[in-house]
């Protein structure tokens, strides 16, 4: 045995560490969204109020990043069990990672750039946007 890099060692560790985090993150997320709020109470205002606290944005971003990489890792290990897929391994892995990366980028973009100003835009029309822009830093 040596400390020389064995392919897959990092993925093995990552899967276990991210998995442990995801159990906690998704447990909280599921209880929060499905049991405390309930799917009938997920209006825009609810999301805006929740994401008003940076804590929840960070939680959701962590869940997104851990989840998508954990998922891509898992899918890769399933795919690599198939001989026909192993033949074109590079393309398959690229494909899975690309899907995962695009999802992370889109998700992060939503989490980072979401601002409830968009709500006032829809409610009061575009004329109110300029006035709203300066004063709408705290949404309540």
């Amino acid at each position: 045995m040596s400390y020389k890099k064995v392919p897959g060692t990092f993925a093995w560790w990552f899967q276990r560490i991210s998995g442990s985090f995801l159990i906690i993150l998704i447990f909280i997320h599921f209880i929060d969204v499905h049991f405390i709020f309930g799917v009938e109470n997920l209006e825009y205002e609810t999301v805006a109020e929740k994401w008003n606290k940076p804590f929840w944005r960070i939680m959701d971003a962590l869940m997104l990043i851990f989840g998508m990489i954990h998922g891509a890792n898992g899918i890769e290990s399933i795919l690599l069990d198939y001989k026909k897929i192993r033949k074109y391994k590079t393309y398959w892995i690229f494909f899975v990672r690309a899907i995962s990366a695009v999802t992370i980028i889109i998700g992060s973009w939503i989490i980072v750039t979401f601002s409830p100003e968009e709500k006032s835009m829809a409610e009061h029309g575009s004329s109110a946007v300029e006035i709203q822009d300066e004063s709408s830093e705290s949404y309540e």
Partner: peptide
Amino acid sequence: RLTGIGIFIFLIIHVMGAIYLKIGPEEW
């Protein structure tokens, strides 16, 4: 494996659905 694949696909759709947050309140 089956649940993993299912959750992975769900998560992608789930994130894509969240795009409605950027489109507008009524759409969301």
